[in-house]
Simulated scan of single mutants.
Amino acid sequence: MAFPITRHRRLRRTAALRGMVRENYLHANDLIAPIFVIHGQNIKNEIPSMPGVYQWSIDRLPEEIAELREAGIGAVLLFGIPEHKDSVGTGAYEEAGIVQQATRRIKELAPELVVIADTCLCEFTDHGHCGIVHRVGNEAIVDNDESLEVLVKTAVSQAAAGADIIAPSNMMDGFVAAIRQGLDEAGFEDIPILSYAVKYSSAYYGPFREAAQSAPQFGDRKTYQMDPANAREALREAQSDIEEGADMLMVKPGLAFLDIVRLLKDRFDLPVAIYNVSAEYSMVKAAAIQGWIDEKAIVLETLTGMKRAGADVIITYHAKDAARWLRGE
């Protein structure tokens, strides 16, 4: 029926009517909060390019964990900054590594909190790449298969420390199969893998590289992370990870790739995560500090849009604030 029989505004007339027909709701349990942990004592370093986000020493983690629990956040994603780096990322899989120590401490503080361990080497290598690098003539090559061996050791070490979910973000071919086999052989058959299945080589990661001290020291990551122009390739990557044993799929970054989230949601039946990444956060924060935008309204609209696109869970640096706003604070 056409106007005037059909009047779409009828269902928008009051807040109660709008709420009754709302299609998507955002909840605190949709949100995962990233945490950066660092060696040392009494450290709470605010990251200059990410106002309100900090590097935490393990002795001060209780403050952050208490705030997250109070806000109703049920899961965290751990990133570690080691004391020493080397060419093969040894610190990623050490029993006393920074992520392993932080995992144990969080599990002591909040056993019910889901700890997700980011499984990559870029924070732990002195060259900043996500795998083992070899020189071939004048060119530096990330060795895919040799990198898998170190990534498996890292995942097993993280699971042994108490991680509830392993989240490999390295984008090596075959990484899910290798890690699944390694976890199973080590007795961690019940530990799920949240695969960074579709991770683009993006300009949106800049502030994160400051926070995690993980910027590549030469070259870029375009030979292993995806070209932002490609969508069909995302389906191939996701299909491979599913066949290799992934339990959940992730799209990273978020805002510029909502179409990819919808593609995965419509094509596959695994839970889909989206990463609301550092530059997305920093741009909102910068504009809010200038008074140019309503931060609360912008953040909640953005996160709701990610849900509408098909995300089941959202990794976001806004997690604490968003959870409090959703409670009316």
Rank of each mutant, 00 (worst) to 15 (best):
A140I: 00
G305Y: 01
P216K: 09
V21K: 03
D294N: 15
I293Y: 02
I43V: 15
D266Q: 13
S87K: 13
E146D: 13
R7A: 07
V251P: 07
C120F: 03
D321A: 15
D321R: 11
H39R: 10
G128Q: 10
N45D: 12
G219F: 04
K153W: 03
Y205R: 02
A229W: 04
D184Q: 11
H318P: 01
F268W: 12
I98R: 02
L31C: 13
Y25H: 13
A92Q: 04
E146A: 06
R180V: 04
D259G: 14
P216H: 09
A203N: 13
Y281M: 05
Y275P: 00
A186P: 04
A279T: 09
E329R: 12
L194W: 11
G89N: 05
V133C: 06
A71D: 03
A211T: 10
T154G: 13
C120R: 02
I47L: 07
A110D: 15
C130K: 06
R327W: 00
E95T: 13
A96M: 10
L235N: 05
F208N: 01
I242R: 03
V261Y: 09
N42V: 01
A322L: 07
L77G: 08
H318E: 13
R327E: 12
E67I: 08
M250Y: 05
Y275D: 04
G91I: 05
F3G: 03
I38G: 00
G291K: 11
P253Q: 09
I314E: 04
A161C: 06
L109F: 11
S278Q: 14
V136C: 11
C120S: 14
D59F: 05
V133P: 08
R324G: 00
D118Y: 11
A71R: 02
R135W: 10
T223Y: 02
Y317Q: 06
K265G: 12
A215M: 12
D190I: 02
H39C: 02
A140E: 13
L77V: 14
L77I: 15
I43M: 01
V251S: 05
T154D: 10
A163D: 08
M20H: 07
Q101L: 13
R262Q: 14
V299Q: 04
F3N: 04
I43R: 02
A212K: 04
R324A: 08
D30W: 06
S240A: 15
D118F: 03
V272R: 00
A75C: 06
A231T: 11
D190N: 15
G128S: 09
Y281H: 09
E139H: 10
S147R: 12
L303E: 04
C130A: 14
V37R: 02
E243S: 11
A159W: 09
Q100M: 08
G182A: 10
G80M: 05
R221Q: 08
G91N: 10
I5Y: 14
I98V: 15
I315H: 00
E244H: 07
M172A: 12
E295N: 04
A231W: 06
Y25C: 08
I73R: 08
A273C: 15
R13I: 09
T304K: 11
L68E: 01
D269G: 03
G74W: 00
N138P: 00
